[in-house]
Amino acid sequence: MQFNTQVVSPVTPLMVCTDIELIAAHDNRKTVGKISVTNPRMRCRNVNVFYGDKQAINRVNLDIGRHEVIAMIGPSGCGKSTFLRCLNRMNDTIDSCRVTGEILLDDQDIYDKKLDVVPLRAQVGMVFQKPNPFPKSIYENVAYGPRIHGLVSSKSDLDVVVESSLCRAGLWDEVKDRLDQPGTGLSGGQQQRLCIARTIAVGPEVILMDEPCSALDPIATAKIEGLIDELREEYTIAIVTHSMQQAARVSQRTAYFHLGDLIEVGETNQIFTNPQHKLTEDYITGRFG
């Protein structure tokens, strides 16, 4: 019994992380597991987020590697969505929200005062919880991004972009005959794939997904998950999800957030079979009161 409590106690984690900067930054809030990767696309260091006086994210350090799907899990209000929204500065729209620390996208600090947020969001696209196609035609939904960013010069080029984006989102065959019909007339799963097509039409490097399947039925969910798996070859994907099974299915690495802290991060297999932190363990085995 005593031995057992030693293993999962939060005070003495079994795996001690090796990153020097982490140990310097953290005292009693050590993130368990390896936060860095060998080929990072995004690096977050000491990220804090405040809503007014309330701190929503507390000194989070995390790398997001190239061509990897990283899943962020945790109970409601743990800050995982907030953290995700920091990665393309969607939090800017909230007046009271303040972000400190450093978030690098390919060695460029995205919170740099001089950095323009518009091209950033073209680089780091986002897919939301509720499918939110524009109340326009399917074609216009996908074409909107390339059009406002001036990515194409002619109508025929735009057609090509729209078709390839819809193809990659696995939606082309279903909608090719009704591109002029409203995007909101599609089913929930199709709408969400339309939103993914709309995001990849801009040609982002990173795609953030905020619980993309929470409003979908299992078959639509399976389609989106298959799509995420395929998209991994070209993009870096960070996904927030409430479904642990989903995190286990689609991601290579998993990060567990709890009350604004990044508790544990590691290979998905390891997190789901043998988490090192008591809180992670309790969460994924369903032991939260």
């Binding site: 099974q245 789901f272 079979t273 043998n274 994924i284 085995t285 369903g286």
Partner: peptide, 10 residues
């Protein structure tokens, strides 16, 4: 029924 995870799985 439960899709056990982590220590439950073990």
């Amino acid at each position: 029924k439960r899709q056990p995870m982590a220590k439950d799985l073990r």
